[in-house]
Design a binder for these strands. Structure first.
Lengths: 213, 213
DNA sequence: AGGCTGGTAGTCAAAGTTGACTAGCGAGGG
DNA sequence: CCCTCGCTAGTCAACTTTGACTACCAGCCT
């Protein structure tokens, strides 16, 4: 599974009602084109697919107010809401080194309660540690790690990455315990969507040399 | 781009001549089903595609010696050889946080000369540092990082990951400089393929609880 | 002899992804 | 007034990925 469904569901949800181009704008605003496969084609595909599956409801074509073709507006359904939270919770605890999913989940972290977020992040650490010990136990040949030759460097890379991830997670836990950010039910939320007409400071353009990578 | 082409090309190349099931076995032996999308469908698809594109030559169907349908054997072509090294070099220097590609590249690292491998790894570090400074410069709002709210944690995650990657790369460089492993042209290479009839200690099975993730 | 299991080798439809392309409208220049 | 440019909003074909499925043979059990 990729991050696109979580991102699109979350974007539509935060808007209440959004069309594809709006979602596209939000994801760009979040920098998602940098760290996920959130390209136009994928976004529109995900919208259609999730509408077909009943996670979104498609309000048929409103003619555009600002030039261009008519647009389809989407709204999240109850089943979509469920799917969003299921995806979010899974993505937070799953250690599968897919950074795009992890990033997307962090972006929606504050949709949960602080207590649940902390719980999930602690579970994440437990799973990373479990994974780490499974790997070190099972992938080391009987004759010692030397038998693996340079192939052992792959395992080394993974362990190194897992440790870095656990450390980052712990850092986030510490910040959250210290009261950082505003979670669901804690008052005025931080909303990261672009309202109609607002310019996007991170729009695709010349401003990010790293786009060229 | 995914890791599958590099993996399949490299596997066929190390065998000299291999059919799909053999490639599948090698990738499993390398643990690639854990850290990449090397599923049967993808492997067979990649083989066919690369044969169509002239990177592999398909020796038409030899009847199987051990039950099952007849099998197609593949051999790498000169263009395939070029493509393999181009992919390998690219994958080593590219910092795009796709761990599957990085892992695959590490697996074939010793196909290069030690000098070139070191050169590429140093370039990798330079690129990570470049990426890091680009990101920190361009993605921090004028009003300070606090403006980002919890979204800033995504950037934090990426920076953290980049630093961990650079550290791992430096560690590998140190080990290679100290003479670790056997590179191309340095004598008897370490070959990580399964020969006919050899049992695969890492075959898909009950032995890896982490498969269940 | 018949049936069951398990390994061998691979196919296929459905889903997801990519990058290039289109079409409509407004603003601004000449 | 016309033409181009750029933004809005999206489509589409080609390609890749996924997971379930198939067919064949060997060995074992009864």
């Amino acid at each position: 599974m990729s991050a696109i469904r979580l991102l699109v569901l979350g974007a539509v949800r935060q808007h209440g009602r959004a069309h594809g181009y709006q979602v596209r704008g939000d994801l760009e605003y979040w920098g998602a084109h940098e760290w996920s496969n959130a390209k136009p084609g994928s976004i529109y595909h995900a919208l259609k697919q999730m509408a077909k599956q009943g996670l979104l409801h498609a309000h048929e074509i409103a003619p555009s107010t600002a030039g261009g073709p008519p647009r389809v507006e989407y709204e999240i359904t109850d089943r979509g809401e469920d799917a969003f939270f299921r995806l979010l919770r899974e993505s937070l605890v799953a250690y599968d080194q897919k950074m795009d999913i992890q990033s997307a989940a962090v972006g929606f972290l504050v949709e949960l309660s602080r207590a649940e977020a902390l719980e999930l992040l602690r579970e994440r650490i437990r799973r990373i540690e479990q994974w780490r010990s499974d790997v070190t136990e099972h992938y080391i040949p009987e004759a010692g790690p030397g038998q693996l030759g340079h192939i052992g460097e792959i395992m080394n890379l993974w362990i190194h990455t897992a440790d870095a991830d656990a450390a980052w997670t712990q850092g986030l836990i510490d910040r959250l315990e210290a009261g950082a950010y505003t979670f669901a039910g804690e008052g005025e939320p931080f909303v990261g969507v672009l309202t109609e007409g607002q310019e996007n400071p991170y729009a695709t353009g010349e401003r990010h040399p790293e786009d060229d990578r």
